[in-house]
């Protein structure tokens, strides 16, 4: 099975993770100014990249949502980054 890297916990089996969404889609706001097409694009559209993909994943064990870059063809993990800023 695959093994992904959580920025906090390190290398863990794929069963601990959940794919959330393709990264790089900021939520369009305020609602009143967003067209139907733009909202549909945010909700549903994506690139389904073949090759390098930037994705948001959830590590269920520790609850961290993080950014992972993978190759969708070879399934190699290229990088994992925490999205939260460090606390003081």
């Amino acid at each position: 099975m695959q093994a992904f890297t959580c920025p906090f916990c390190g290398h863990r089996d794929e069963t601990e993770f959940h794919f959330v969404v393709e990264a790089g889609k900021p939520r369009p706001e305020p609602s009143e100014e967003v067209s139907d097409e733009k909202w549909a694009a945010y909700l549903h559209m994506g690139k389904a990249p073949k090759g390098e993909a930037r994705e948001i994943w959830l590590h269920i064990t520790c609850g961290l949502y993080f950014l992972m870059t993978r190759d969708t063809v070879t399934r190699d993990i290229l990088s994992s980054e925490c999205l939260l800023e460090a606390s003081e």
Binding site: M1, E14, F19, A48, E55, T72, V73, R75
Partner: peptide, 10 residues
């Protein structure tokens, strides 16, 4: 449920 273009599962 891992996005992929490789015809292989785990």
């Amino acid at each position: 449920r891992v996005p992929t273009h490789g015809q292989k599962g785990n």
